[in-house]
Simulated scan of single mutants.
Amino acid sequence: MEVLKNKKTLQDFIERQKEMGKRIGFAPTMGALHNGHLSLYETARKENDLVISSIFVNPTQFNNAEDLEKYPRDTDHDITILKTSGLVDAVYLPQVEDIYPEKTESQSYDYDGLENEMEGKSRPGHFDGVGTVVEELFRQVKPDNAYFGEKDYQQLAIIKKMVEKKQLPIKVKGVSIYRAENGLALSSRNQRLSETRKEDARIIFETLTKVNEWFKNTSIVNIKKNVNEIFDNQTNMELEYFLIADENTLKETDQREEKNPYRAFIVVNVDGVRLIDNMHLN
């Protein structure tokens, strides 16, 4: 596995691969890698000649400086995980100046309103930061296919919209949420939880599973009441929000139409660690 430590090294590598006609699959990360990330590379491996990872903790998508500082970083360990997996041909480790050559700030994006829903309400500017780093990585890596986990479903929708609007020649593909045995969605933030709290947090997935059942014959208003009651009875965790939204527009709804696809979204704070999850509703 090649370790590419700056933009010039990456560009030389990509140029050689393109000359050989290699089809490139790419999944960018912020490190603290786990099996959820590896599931992206497993999917990419099946569909491409070459698989590239990147590790870069992007400063412009954090609204909270303390959150940026606390974000887990262990690049050597991450490289070992990638090498051991055998799924990745190269990992790109850009420096801040490789992504932001002049000033560390975001561009502004219009995502047709997707950025104003859910996470966008509490994290202004967050998705401008996401769009800025992902667009720059796409322009540098030049992938044919790019892979993102459905755990961050709003982010996936926004990246698809950015690619569409910028007319980038890339297919963006979502990969199913990778879960621990107890159902907890794998996340780099989980590293900040004790084993006891990880086990307690299984209630998030259990709740979503109940919501999927309720959705067949219970009103959305009553589903919300049920979810609030579940978390009112929990200690050491706080429900930040739960909602059901149209999968295409991400707009929250209390009514449903037969033809529209819907998804449940939930954010729970467990011992100060913010956990997000979602589920497609049948």
Score class of each variant (00 low, 15 high):
T9H: 12
P261Y: 03
I81A: 00
Y241S: 05
V91N: 08
D89Y: 09
N64R: 02
N226G: 06
I244F: 07
V88T: 13
R139N: 11
G113K: 08
Y178E: 11
H37N: 03
W214Q: 14
G86N: 08
L243R: 05
W214G: 07
E181V: 12
V273R: 07
E240H: 07
Y153D: 03
Q61C: 01
E150Q: 15
V51W: 05
A185I: 13
R189N: 09
D67F: 02
N260K: 12
N222L: 12
S53I: 01
T235C: 03
Q191E: 15
F265E: 04
N217E: 15
M162N: 02
Q140L: 14
K46Q: 13
K83N: 14
N226I: 12
V175Y: 10
F62C: 00
D12T: 15
L4H: 06
T80G: 04
G183D: 11
D128I: 01
N226V: 08
N190C: 14
T84A: 13
Q234M: 12
K224I: 11
Y71G: 01
V163P: 05
I220K: 06
K70E: 00
M279L: 15
F13H: 15
V267T: 14
E19C: 09
R73A: 01
N212I: 08
I223Y: 10
Q61T: 00
K225V: 11
A27E: 01
F205A: 13
Y71S: 01
A27R: 03
R197A: 14
E105N: 13
G113V: 09
L114E: 09
G120P: 03
H34A: 01
Q61P: 00
S187A: 12
S85T: 06
W214H: 12
E258N: 07
H126D: 09
E19W: 06
K121M: 12
A65L: 00
N228H: 11
F231L: 04
E247Q: 13
K18F: 08
L156R: 09
M1P: 05
A32M: 03
T196E: 15
I276A: 07
L250S: 03
S54G: 02
A32E: 04
K103N: 15
G131C: 10
S176C: 02
N6I: 05
D200S: 15
R263D: 02
G86C: 07
T132K: 02
T218Q: 13
S85H: 04
T75P: 00
K225F: 08
T235A: 13
L40R: 02
I170W: 07
V270P: 02
T253V: 09
G31Q: 06
I266N: 04
F231H: 04
F231R: 06
T207Y: 14
L239H: 03
Q95H: 15
N212G: 07
S194H: 14
P94H: 12
E115K: 10
M162K: 02
A264G: 11
V267P: 02
V268H: 04
I230M: 08
G129V: 04
R263H: 01
E195P: 13
T132N: 03
N116R: 10
N278F: 09
Q155P: 04
K18P: 05
K216N: 09
R23C: 14
